[in-house]
Write a protein that binds this DNA or RNA. Structure first.
Length: 551
DNA sequence: TTAGGGTTAG
């Protein structure tokens, strides 16, 4: 009798807690209810724990998601499923759902058709093709392969791991398909931008399509660099939503067509945070930082709150514009509005401060990044290198190598710049060789420019000239300019003449090249030649003095 | 179970 009263009492409390959780909308509220559950000794209740786990994930609070799960002594299938789903929603913690899956197998609990789709979301987010394939094998053995959502998420997982053929393998074997199955395959094509004629054929023969199918076709053509076809799809769509407009807009910005993007932006029936951010990013990435900032202020006027992604591009725009006031403004904006200081935001801040010469602040912010990636390292290295801190830049590069972060082409631009500005010719040549041989990075025009600059500063003009002539991408203004500047330093008229001739052809309106050559002649007292160059400059660069030509 | 936005470059 007493037991039943007590259990009735307890059930009341469980119901009450469940009702409270249903109504809970904020993280502080959630923590309060969690505390109530704990005080009432209900934390072993698996249903309440499942709800808590989901809500903590919804508020992106992985620490507590894990805490709640691990405080339940014998987790059942439902709690495992809720927790796997919870971690699959937090991109940085997807690996946890795979760990949970392994744990549930170990505990002898059999996954069901609700387990797999979320697991595959995690595999997709991690590009964990290996795990995904293994779990696929278990599905075949256990007979859950007849569930549509399970197969659909499998197609999606293979697609997101760039395994288009495997997506088709699953798709072709399905006896029953729905629009999601088709869309998942179209999404796989879209991600790669590959084989769009096959995608088009599939699209044309779909029994039913929806706006997601159309949008996937746009993405596919954009990623395949076929903007005309992308636009044709966009124009033919029976109905467009805000995603369709934004997708097309991004298609234009990705290919540098900012004007077309802006036309679309102005014509959109509705805009959301993502559309604004996409347009701001379009400007920031295509060398129009002023426009990016102007649009950001219009976004504020429209009372759309920016998030971390928006601010990443805004910071990048400020970095390009420079100026103490702007740098200070954006820094305090991020602080005051509580913008999430994630890896990308911090990297953009590191880059901005480094570009503006505030090396200490850049280093301080870099230390705030828990796991710096190739972007964060490159931002710091290039920033340090271009402000005369070559030694420090190389020190950071060594740290990067020690932490097993793979450098990319841009990292090496920074590394080579550091060597060139510090006069470390031997090291520079060694890094160059290592870049090609160990890291299999194809040297670009910027790398050549660094090495040419380095050799030129060291007075090895013949060697530098030889390198310029061996560039597989042909003559390039950056490398040629560096060599011409070195010719000025060392008064080498012969190489200067040959280099300047090429530069005049490549950039006839860049007056700096004429001025350099004229001053080389002047330093050798070849006054007649110097005058000739100045006259040629006046003919070709009317009213186009350096610093004004971009207006 | 399916679709859109972010950082590094002489």
């Amino acid at each position: 009798m007493q037991t039943s009263v007590r259990s009735h009492h307890k059930n009341n409390k469980v119901d009450r807690a469940a009702t409270l959780l249903k109504a809970c909308i904020s993280l502080p509220q959630l923590k309060q209810i969690h505390a109530f559950i704990f005080r009432s000794n209900l934390h072993q209740n698996k249903s309440l724990a499942s709800t808590l786990v989901s809500l903590y994930a919804f508020h992106s609070f992985p620490r507590y998601t894990h805490l709640v799960f691990s405080s339940v002594s014998n987790p059942n299938l439902s709690l495992f499923n809720h927790s796997i789903r919870a971690f699959s929603k937090i991109p940085s913690h997807c690996i946890q759902s795979i760990h949970l899956y392994l744990q549930m197998i170990h505990n002898g609990i059999k996954p069901d058709n609700f387990t797999y789709p979320f697991l595959f979301n995690s595999c997709a987010a991690l590009s964990a093709l290996h795990h995904g394939t293994e779990i696929h094998g278990r599905i075949i053995r256990s007979g859950f392969g007849s569930y549509l959502p399970v197969c659909n998420s499998l197609i999606d997982m293979y697609g997101k791991c760039n395994a288009l053929d495997r997506s088709y393998d699953v798709f072709d074997e399905m006896s029953e398909k729905d629009v999601v199955s088709y869309n998942a395959v179209l999404g796989a094509h879209a991600k790669l931008g590959e084989d769009m004629s096959r995608a088009q054929q599939l699209f044309d023969h779909m029994p039913v399509s929806n706006v997601i199918s159309w949008n996937a076709m746009i993405v596919g053509y954009v990623n395949g660099s076929d903007l005309d076809s992308a636009r044709a799809v966009f124009d033919r769509m029976p109905e467009r939503n805000v995603v369709s407009w934004t997708t097309m807009l991004v298609g234009y910005t990705k290919h540098g067509l900012v004007g077309s993007a802006r036309d679309l932006f102005d014509a959109m029936p509705q805009r959301n945070l993502i559309s604004w951010t996409a347009m701001i990013t379009g400007y920031a990435q295509n060398g129009q930082p002023g426009e990016a900032l102007a649009l950001f202020h219009r976004m504020e006027e429209a009372r759309i709150k920016p998030d971390a992604a928006t601010m990443t591009s805004v910071i990048s725009a400020c970095a390009q514009l420079g100026g103490t006031e702007l740098v200070q403004w954006v820094g305090s904006y991020v602080d005051q509005k509580g913008i999430e200081r994630n890896e990308r935001v911090l990297t953009a801040l590191v880059d901005m401060h480094a570009k503006c010469g505030n090396v200490e602040e850049a280093c301080r912010l870099f230390k705030e990044i828990p796991q710096p990636d190739v972007f964060s390292y490159s931002a710091l290295i290039t920033g340090l290198a271009s402000h005369g801190h070559g030694i420090k830049a190389l020190e950071i590069f060594r740290k990067m190598q020690a932490s097993d972060i793979e450098p990319d082409d841009i990292t090496f631009v920074g590394v080579l710049t550091a060597c060139s500005h510090t006069g470390l010719v031997e090291d520079g040549l060694r890094f160059w060789e290592s870049m090609v041989k160990n890291y299999l990075i194809e040297p670009g025009a910027d790398h050549y420019a660094c090495i040419v600059d380095m050799l030129g500063r060291a007075g090895q003009l013949e060697e530098a000239h030889r390198l310029v002539r061996s560039m597989p991408m042909g003559p390039h203004p950056g490398a040629l300019g560096a060599l011409l500047a070195a010719c000025r330093t060392y008064g080498n008229v012969q190489i200067a003449e040959s280099v300047a001739k090429q530069l005049f052809e490549l950039e006839p309106e860049n007056s700096g090249n004429y001025i350099l050559l004229a001053s080389i002649y002047a330093s050798r007292e070849q006054w007649e030649e110097a005058t000739k160059v100045r006259v040629a400059m006046k003919e070709k660069c009317v009213n186009k003095l350096p610093g004004c030509s971009w207006i």
